[in-house]
Amino acid sequence: MTFWPPSRPTLIVLIGAVLLLLLPPIAEALRQPFVISVATRVVILALVTVSLDLLIGFGGMVSLGHAAFFGAGAYATALLTQLAAAGKPLVWGWVPPVEGLAVWTIAIVVAALFGLVIGALALRTSGFNFIMITLAFAQMVLFLASLRELGGDDGLRIPVRNTVVGFSIESQTALYYVSLVALALYLFLCDRIVHSRFGLVLQAIAQNPRRAHALGYRVYSYRLVTFVIGAAGAGLAGALIANHARYVSPDLLMWTRSAEIMIMVILGGKGTLFGAVLGAAVLLLLEEFLIGLTEHWQVILGPILLVVVLTARRGLFGLLAGSRGGGGGHG
């Protein structure tokens, strides 16, 4: 792959990366620091959207339960950090550290384990039934999160943010850059995956599972591995959102959140990975704008989204990047 002159999609990604990198100093200069907080949310939701795009756009797995993994990562982070702050042991006298790299790794592992169990069962089905069984499992995880032991409907407050390699991320800007690094790393990982041999097989399976099976590929295993990688990404996003809000509640796992993430994937363009960032940004900013406009903002948002789904087959990234919008899918 030659890097110069850059292709149009590469150029868009580069411009986007520069804008995201420069956002905090610009916001500070314009004395609009709250922009950084909104941008952090955008970056974190972009991360979870990328992870769902990996499933939908490349694996052909339309999961309507992705919020479960997001929530699992967030709750794991909240619980561990609460214990760490209070100096209480989790098990066998082991007190969790405040260090994010440790806590978030556990959060990712927890989300991945949820993904492994749910994926192993749900991937026995396909099509409509797969959509419904992932929704059903997410509702079960939602029930777990609503337990009184986990704060019930009130959720859990987190006294301190995690540290990253010993550095504090209490400042909004620090958390923003940490989230951006997480997003960049996960995007890099997914980009490598979808362009690898594994990713090509995965896309072949999405297009025609029967043919892939006949060619000797273990369809189920490829899908399950991808499902777990997606769940892990959502778990990392969950860990970050817990730090951002310093609060987790069952709201994070509602099925409407799964649908919202799905809309971000479609809006950005499924099967484009980088488009997910655009989708998350546009939907969140649109919501922020409409909320400022009227308390009945959803009555406007609904029809807008409907038109988007009906018309924008290739998503925003496809529009911007021209004819070759990216990898898999057939949209």
Binding site: L64, F128, H296, V299, G302, L306, L310
Partner: peptide, 22 residues
Amino acid sequence: DHLDQVLATFSLILFFNELARI
């Protein structure tokens, strides 16, 4: 495809819920 159907009808839920509130 199913994905578009889910999302389009989900958008309608948002609309009708808010409309009912109004």
